[in-house]
């Protein structure tokens, strides 16, 4: 052991990339058809939300000579009762949906994960108080809770995002706390304590990275719930206000013209269904891949 038998090798920067782990997960993910369909739908949704409004023109431009037109070359998805291009409105609505879904989920994660970490790690009175509050809020159905909050916060995109993120918060806290409780008992956490690691180090280097899987899955499942939540609130008039396009508002407006222009209800309805289906399939796939108990 005293003698070096191997030729000198250059020191590699080993702790920068986690590339091979990612490659392995991607190989596992790619083999499954349903998650790949989900990923495709999500990517299509993102492309529509990001690039759609750039090519579609003004979603608020009215044309009274072309109201309630069926799909045509000029208006590929038709026009509404004010002669506005349905494609432009659907594309802008995708942006609204994306903002509501992603922003509210990110906000809920940013607030809920630290609370869950602290409650699960320090236990005692902090845990008791937090978890009783979580239990109380979880007793309300998600949408009832969100509708109530949106009514208080006032109808606007900002109000919708805040209401939806607050409604998601209890679930995020509970999942994070559960992960902390499980992982703090792991041998590698005991080993870290025995090496003199501080609480912050144990929380952010040991517990958080090893609970990332369930939290990522939670996020992908929460986004479609929030998208439906935004559409519902807007449909009820508690969310985004006209003239800002939203799939929920479009559905609500289309009700009056179901017999003359059914496509006005079909497009936003179909897109809500496809976007949420995509995120859910993606979430299921991630759960399978990130769960170490599932196969190779």
């Amino acid at each position: 052991m005293a003698e070096k038998t191997h030729p000198p090798e250059p020191i590699v920067r080993w702790n920068s990339g986690r590339a091979d782990r990612r490659r392995r997960l991607w190989r596992r993910f790619r083999r499954r058809p349903m998650p790949m369909i989900g990923l495709t739908l999500v990517v299509a949704f993102l492309v529509l939300a990001v690039f759609g409004p750039l090519v579609s023109g003004d979603p608020s431009a009215q044309d009274y000579l072309a109201t309630l037109m069926p799909p045509s070359i000029d208006h590929p998805l038709g026009t509404d009762d004010l002669g506005r291009d349905a494609f432009a409105r659907v594309a802008s609505g995708a942006r609204t949906s994306l903002q509501a879904g992603v922003l509210s989920t990110l906000l809920a994660m940013a607030v809920g994960i630290p609370i869950g970490l602290a409650a699960g790690f320090y236990r005692r009175w902090l845990d008791s108080i937090v978890m009783r509050l979580v239990d109380v809020t979880l007793a309300f159905p998600f949408l009832v809770f969100a509708v109530g909050l949106a009514a208080i916060l006032g109808p606007s995109l900002r109000g919708v995002v805040l209401a939806l993120s607050f409604a998601q918060l209890p679930a995020v806290i509970r999942i994070t706390r559960g992960e902390v409780l499980a992982i703090r008992e792991m041998d590698y956490v005991s080993a870290a304590i025995a090496d003199g690691a501080t609480d912050g180090h144990i929380l952010f280097r040991y517990i958080l990275p090893n609970s990332a899987g369930p939290l990522i899955v939670q996020a992908t499942v929460a986004i479609p719930t929030a998208i439906i939540g935004e559409a519902t609130l807007s449909f009820l008039g508690l969310g985004v206000q006209p003239p800002t396009p939203s799939w929920g508002v479009m559905l609500s407006d289309a009700q009056q013209y179901l017999d003359q222009a059914p496509w006005l209800a079909i497009w936003p309805g179909l897109l809500i269904a496809l976007a949420t289906l995509g995120f859910n399939l993606l979430g299921d796939g991630l759960r399978d891949v990130l769960d170490p108990r599932s196969g190779p």
């Binding site: 080993w14 041998d187 590698y188 025995a194 090496d195 003199g196």
Partner: peptide
């Protein structure tokens, strides 16, 4: 805490579960 790992170190019974699965072994030593 300054003594643990510096003056008194511990090796546990279960080597397979005593390392943090999220980081390389090199990172854990550094």
């Amino acid at each position: 805490r300054r003594i643990r790992g510096k003056e008194v170190a511990v090796v546990f019974q279960e080597p397979m579960t005593s390392l943090n699965p999220s980081f390389t072994v090199g990172y854990q030593i550094t």
